[in-house]
């Protein structure tokens, strides 16, 4: 018996496979990048179908938005055509086929899709589902596990994002990226700005996008959302402004001198919350210590603070990445 959810799932997974095969075959890198945006969008729909709404949110904003733009920025600095290889690499094909066959063999024993008795649904998960509402006062289980139960992981991941941004700045943030406004370019290169429909549309959209980012940030406890998604959505609003209007104007509003220190501030807020819980007599990131009489209130406060830290770091990292890639002059 096939349910509707399974049917949608089968169709979408097939579409995903077709998109990936097209990405392999096409040599025009611009088309490949556009296809990867479509691929991310289809992935986001699949995640919604599989009840992973928070992941869908993230994939839609990161994969279809930011990562496509970073790829395009790189194409503008390098080249948009892939060279035709001189020969087919049969060795690579053999390795891939053998590995693929081994993995396929591995799936034979796996529990079927949607099986509630599958070992992945362990007692740990049951505990999260039954107890997290009372312990943290946060209805969204993904948020409470992310920011409280597995807060250490998330702090590590925020630090990885921070480190990646530092590394990109070391590689590309040097002399050739000018923080000072450059001389106005000729009108032909600013053609986006001259298109009235794009301008009007962007003007209507940018405000709601930024507002929506704040909603996702602060409503993440109750519905899908949180610091990661909010940060990316906020950055997407700023990037839209920079693309349609002017890089320099956007950079004047969100100056590198402000956004770069904010990257570190977000991580500091996260780690600082952990240190604060130590001073309240709890464990590192054990938010219950904030309010010994109502541990759930303490948890809510702690989750709010670390999500805020994540949001600040992620939004500023994404803006910095965009400005660094797209502000660099062609060699």
């Amino acid at each position: 018996m096939i349910t509707m959810v399974t049917l949608i799932d089968l169709v979408l997974f097939t579409l995903l496979g077709i998109t990936a095969i097209a990405m392999l075959r096409i040599r025009d890198l611009f088309a490949v990048v556009m296809l990867s945006g479509i691929y991310s969008l289809v992935s986001a729909v699949i995640f919604t179908d599989l009840d992973a709404v928070d992941v869908a949110f993230t994939e839609a904003s990161v994969g279809a938005g930011i990562s496509t733009i970073l790829m395009l920025g790189t194409l503008a600095l390098t080249s948009t055509k892939e060279k035709t290889p001189r020969r087919q690499s049969w060795g690579a094909l053999l390795i891939v086929l053998v590995t693929g066959a081994a993995l396929m063999y591995g799936t034979v024993d796996m529990p079927a899709f949607g099986d509630a008795a599958s070992p992945i649904n362990s007692p740990v998960t049951d505990r999260y589902i039954t107890a997290s509402g009372e312990e943290t006062g946060v209805p969204n289980i993904v948020t409470s596990v992310l920011a409280s139960y597995r807060g250490y992981d998330t702090m590590g991941e925020t630090t990885v994002i921070f480190t990646a941004a530092i590394a990109v700045l070391i590689l590309l943030g040097s002399a050739r990226t000018t923080d000072a406004p450059v001389t106005p370019r000729p009108a032909t290169t600013r053609s986006l700005e001259l298109r009235p429909i794009l301008r009007a549309g962007a003007k209507l959209l940018i405000g709601p996008i930024l507002l929506f980012a704040f909603y996702v940030q602060f409503h993440g406890d109750f519905g899908p959302g949180g610091g990661f998604q909010a940060g990316v959505i906020f950055a997407a609003g700023v990037i839209l402004y920079a693309l349609i209007f002017d890089m320099d104007r956007a950079r004047a509003l969100f100056r590198p001198a402000v956004t770069r220190p904010l990257i570190a501030l977000g991580v500091l807020i996260y780690a600082g919350t952990g240190i604060a819980t130590l001073f309240f007599g709890g464990n590192f990131l054990g938010y219950s210590a904030f309010n010994p009489h109502h541990p759930a209130h303490g948890q809510e406060l702690g989750i709010f603070l670390v999500e805020l830290g994540v949001g600040i770091t992620v939004s500023n990292v994404m803006m910095t990445l965009f400005f660094t890639f797209c502000g660099r002059r062609r060699p």
């Binding site: 992945i120 993904v142 991941e157």
Partner: peptide, 18 residues
């Protein structure tokens, strides 16, 4: 539905783009 894979993969996506 199991929340744990969502938590782990959500952060992986953002780390992946960085």
């Amino acid at each position: 539905t199991n929340p744990l894979p969502s938590v782990l993969m959500l952060t992986a996506i953002v780390v992946g783009v960085a």
